[in-house]
Amino acid sequence: MQRVNMIMAESPGLITICLLGYLLSAECTVFLDHENANKILNRPKRYNSGKLEEFVQGNLERECMEEKCSFEEAREVFENTERTTEFWKQYVDGDQCESNPCLNGGSCKDDINSYECWCPFGFEGKNCELDVTCNIKNGRCEQFCKNSADNKVVCSCTEGYRLAENQKSCEPAVPFPCGRVSVSQTSKLTRAETVFPDVDYVNSTEAETILDNITQSTQSFNDFTRVVGGEDAKPGQFPWQVVLNGKVDAFCGGSIVNEKWIVTAAHCVETGVKITVVAGEHNIEETEHTEQKRNVIRIIPHHNYNAAINKYNHDIALLELDEPLVLNSYVTPICIADKEYTNIFLKFGSGYVSGWGRVFHKGRSALVLQYLRVPLVDRATCLRSTKFTIYNNMFCAGFHEGGRDSCQGDSGGPHVTEVEGTSFLTGIISWGEECAMKGKYGIYTKVSRYVNWIKEKTKLT
């Protein structure tokens, strides 16, 4: 034993070699072989497995989906700052455009905790909710729209109204504003409101030439003092309507412009014939205590009207009353817009006519005020429907199939267009061939041609 100890002390290297040989010859039971080890760690190889990531292109799944990435790591994937920024906006807080917040056709661009709407022409605001041009839906104005110097929408209202708090709607500024039905039992019968379409306001006024200088022999019209197929109006439903009495009662109609003036057809009036105007009328054979009678003290036909040349060209006249009318729910003026808007309103496509005229061709006159909704007829169809001249200051309205029309005794009465609950004068009943005849239409004086003249002559002093 002493000898062994001496050998170990003198030859430590020998001992180490012996131990190493023993270990190498022993069977290893701690580690699995290569094949079995792979069965336990069965993990798919990654895209760049075996390579240094710093030297390969980034992978979106590896960089940002398996674990949260930084902007720089995302930049490695896209290799483009702009594309990385677009991805980053949604990656950080989701897609803010998912709810489609942009209105009126706006395009949404996502941002971090926010979004941006790219608005089409005519709109602005956070969600493109603000109209900035009158060309689109009248700028959301209830009545009139004008573009300011910086191309912003400025709404306005006709006389007797003021802008509401929203700067879009119009509200009454006087007790009985024009064009409004205020009798409670008839307010439910107000005709369907007309909503502004998209309009090209630059070209809204037709490029028409008034044929002022045409000389033409007097034409022989049949029954051209021209509501057939209409309905009984309720008291106060058309408070701007008046009836004219002269040699015979209810020979023509008219509309209240203001307390002192009536507008009617020029062919209705004769110099030297006494005319009485009755406002607030409903049943011409009954006294309903809503009527107001006034005498006409002055007749002003349009300066281009000449019955000797043509009885229905420039067929418009103004009547001055001896005493002002007292405005109330049964006696209310009709609204008159400017030339541009009167023309736009007419193009809405349908209007209402009213009167006490004959209820059928050569038949009896109506006792109760009649009204009828009539569609506008395109000019080409209008011209083809008659052998008589249709001037540019006239328009056609009615039904091709016949059966409904204005008729004798309705002449001078109103053709009105309702705009968001307020009625505007767009025409004056003038003439036609018979009444409600198939293929024939009622012919009306186009008020847009005469609004400046009306307003100039009827100013209240």
Rank of each mutant, 00 (worst) to 15 (best):
Y391R: 10
K137V: 11
A279N: 00
P324D: 05
S156W: 14
L319R: 00
P414L: 15
F176Q: 06
V243L: 09
I136Y: 13
K45H: 01
H282W: 13
F144C: 01
D198I: 11
N147M: 10
G160F: 02
G254V: 01
G125H: 03
S25I: 13
Q408F: 14
N38P: 05
P172D: 04
I316E: 00
Q219D: 08
I256K: 00
N310H: 13
G229C: 10
S255E: 02
S354K: 07
G280W: 01
N80S: 14
V243T: 10
R373V: 06
R3N: 13
G122F: 04
G357E: 14
K188I: 13
V278N: 05
L32D: 13
G398E: 06
I136R: 13
E79D: 15
T290M: 08
Y391N: 15
V451L: 04
S217I: 11
T389I: 12
V377H: 03
H302D: 02
V195R: 13
T218L: 10
T209N: 13
H289V: 15
E79V: 07
P197M: 13
G236D: 04
L383S: 15
S406F: 15
N151S: 10
R364D: 12
E82W: 04
G403A: 15
V277P: 00
W431N: 13
A26I: 13
I300E: 05
H282R: 08
A37Y: 02
E433N: 15
A149E: 13
N203Y: 08
Q216I: 06
S423N: 15
N147F: 13
Q2R: 15
N310D: 10
Q2V: 11
I15E: 03
T225A: 08
E53D: 00
E231P: 10
Q57D: 01
T332Y: 05
S114Q: 12
R384N: 15
P175N: 08
L425N: 02
I334V: 13
N222P: 08
E259F: 04
A380P: 09
D150G: 11
T422I: 11
L318S: 00
D315L: 00
R379A: 08
L211G: 13
Y352N: 06
Y22C: 13
F238H: 04
A207P: 15
Y312L: 08
Y22P: 03
T29D: 14
C28W: 01
N80V: 05
I40H: 09
E323V: 13
F251R: 08
A380E: 14
K168A: 10
Y330A: 07
L425D: 00
C382Y: 02
F196W: 14
N304F: 11
N203G: 09
T426P: 00
K247C: 05
V353H: 04
A37L: 02
C141D: 00
S411W: 15
P239E: 00
K126E: 14
Y341T: 09
E79A: 08
